[in-house]
Nucleic acid binder design. Structure first.
Length: 273
DNA sequence: TAGGCCATCTGGTCCT
DNA sequence: AGGACCAGATGGCCTA
């Protein structure tokens, strides 16, 4: 999918006024929606300016409506049936999208639970992006250190299985979501002393734009006292010691992350009101 | 009450 | 032709 740019560019920035009008007419005069939605119960009486339409008016409108393509060949019931079918597909599509979004939320390093409001869609996407970037950064750092340690001794420069086995931050995998991170092992980055990781904090724009805003935004039903920026259920924060986890994942988004979030989501970054 | 988020409807566009 | 995708519009719900 993918030819979006061209598709978008060819799309009118806003619908024609007449199209909106006709759409309204279709919905109101002919019950075009099929009244599937519980939130949108359009009826003629609800549309100012359409009240008092005579039967002739409706016929004329129906004619105009039908003139579009071959709709004239379809009965009102057929049109409604088609519309219902399309609406149903769209609902299913959006539902699937939400399911996928939920799946993404589950593997995000963010507080989960009945008392915590779930991430918004945009926050989920932003956090996911930054999470991926952090993991990539962490992986690169790990590779570099492994190379430093084994590279000069003639050992292979790649990951040793034993080292791999101790990597708990390799990223969420199916069945092992980051959200359900097991508590940190005593040494989760055996090759990475705390001093080796960046000293940058999670206040970096990428993460802060999403996570630190949530409480301000009132999205946490119950403030997590003592919880870090990622939330109280985030295992990397304060496990055992109550101190911030020094691991790479908990520390830094890559430098280039700052190019977004706060820019593209000004509201998220400044919504502390 | 304003603003944010969301679900839904809808029509347009593109793809198969 | 039918389906998928997209974006605009609309209204409901919730929170500060």
């Amino acid at each position: 999918m993918d030819s979006d740019t061209s598709r978008v560019s060819s799309r009118p920035s806003s619908p024609e006024v007449d199209d909106i009008f006709m759409s309204t007419l279709k919905k109101s005069v002919h019950g075009f929606t099929g009244a599937v939605s519980s939130t949108q119960s359009d009826s003629p009486s609800e549309i100012p300016g359409l009240r008092g339409l005579s039967a002739a008016d409706e016929d004329a409108l129906a004619l105009r409506m039908a003139s579009k393509k071959d709709r004239k060949l379809l009965s009102e019931n057929e049109l409604q049936s088609i519309r219902l079918k399309i609406n149903s597909r769209e609902r299913k599509r959006m539902h699937d999208l939400n399911v996928a979004m939920d799946g993404l939320r589950e593997v995000m390093p963010y507080a989960h639970g009945p008392s915590v409001r779930k991430l918004s869609k945009i926050a989920t996407l932003l956090l996911a992006r930054n999470y991926i970037l952090m993991l990539s950064n962490s992986l690169e750092e790990m590779k570099r250190l492994v190379s430093e340690i084994y590279g000069s001794s003639g050992h292979h420069g790649g990951f040793h299985p034993s080292a791999c086995g101790t990597m708990t931050h390799a990223g969420p995998v199916p069945g092992h979501p980051a959200a359900s991170h097991a508590p940190h092992p005593a040494v989760h980055h055996p090759l990475l002393p705390p001093a080796a990781v960046s000293t940058a904090s999670l206040s970096a724009p990428g993460i802060s734009a999403v996570t630190s805003v949530r409480p301000h935004h009132g999205l946490l039903k119950a403030p997590a006292a003592g919880a870090g920026p990622l939330g109280s259920s985030f295992q990397h924060w304060g496990v055992g010691t109550g101190m911030p986890c020094p691991c790479s994942m908990c520390q830094v988004p890559p430098p280039h992350v700052s190019s977004m979030s706060t820019v593209t989501m000004p509201r998220l970054a400044t919504d502390s009101k």
